[in-house]
Design a binder for these strands. Structure first.
Lengths: 197, 197
DNA sequence: GTCTATAGATAGATAGAC
DNA sequence: GTCTATCTATCTATAGAC
């Protein structure tokens, strides 16, 4: 936390928690929530079940740990976005299709465990969405913000449904952002002439 | 199947399978895949575990039964759509926000169990998407079809994340289709003047 | 901080009565 | 077709050694 973005090397004590959370998220995505047992998570992270339970005393704590980690990673990504000067809307659409990125994987895992968990997980996802919406709203206004968020989430969903297996691109166009980005460009033009709302 | 749309009364033998599948889907949505055990599903449908296992000899068969049921219900909805003469794109956007409808609930349940299951579940979801895409493509062409599907899926996702608990509307605008439908109208206009591709 | 061992609960599935 | 056992496996979590 003192120097965000500089993750400690894998295997380090300080990084055990992160390794365990990533192992948990990936297991949920690859084999489903049901298979993401304490045993399986521990094994994937290279520790014993007891080791895991030292860091996360219960499944519930493990889930909440992932939610917390998500918000931290989101902060980092938003810092990166602001530093880059890129359009938030474009960034959101583009990264939504990148189902291999760590943040997208964590997000997808939270979505997968959302209804099995406490409301906190759901609220975390809403909070993340609100952070994006705020950034995009400054750029595009209310109308387009809603559809950009919806587009991004639809892209992320389709990328996930299509692209688990081959590590390359999506199996269909529905999990890519190219058309949505072009649409956004077209809308900016359209809007320059006539008001949408 | 002889008279589609006319479902037998609840409790009927002929309808036990359907009751069990709905109980399974709703449990997955409300309490998560993990909680949707054979015991819980049977109890919710009002039968014993043995009774359930007569109709679906394994969890796997239960899941595949739900996938099959989804395709049947999708057929019915598409028949309804075609009979109504409404625009497929508009229909898709509108129904995507209706997370209380049976078909949306079944779809969401399939999405939730997708990565825990055989590839068949994933392929079923892709097949459903392709059916919609085909209908929309006839109306709007390739470019807009992709974004309409993405929008609809994003709406469905947000409707689910927002709206579990209160049975009314979505907790935010992201799970509603109003803006997306207006966007679609605007695009038709825009397109009438200038080509998008 | 990480391990093994184990307790206690519950899952999926089978067998067989009704 | 639906039920009640019941077997077996596996899960979460605890206790305590190292």
């Amino acid at each position: 936390m003192t120097s965000p973005g500089a993750a400690p090397a894998a295997g380090t004590e300080r990084n055990r928690r992160r390794d365990l959370l990533i192992a948990f998220a990936d297991l949920v995505l690859e084999e489903g929530e049901r298979a993401a047992t304490l045993d399986a998570v521990a094994a994937r992270a290279g520790v014993s079940k007891g080791g895991l339970l030292y860091h996360f005393p219960s499944q519930r704590k493990l889930r909440h740990g992932l939610a917390e980690f998500y918000l931290q990673q989101l902060d980092l990504e938003i810092e990166e976005l602001l530093a880059s000067g890129e359009s938030p809307a474009r960034w959101y659409l583009r990264t939504s299709s990148d189902y291999l990125s760590e943040l997208e994987r964590i997000t997808a895992a939270l979505v997968a465990i959302e209804n099995t968990s406490t409301d906190e997980i759901r609220e975390t996802l809403q909070r993340g969405r609100d952070r994006w919406a705020e950034l995009i709203r400054d750029e595009l206004g209310d109308d387009l913000t809603v559809v950009v968020i919806q587009l991004g989430d639809g892209i992320a969903y389709n990328a996930q449904v299509d692209g688990t297996g081959d590590a390359g691109g999506s199996a269909s166009e529905f999990g890519t952002s190219a058309r949505a980005e072009r649409l956004l460009d077209a809308l900016r033009e359209y809007r320059a002439s006539e008001s949408m709302s």
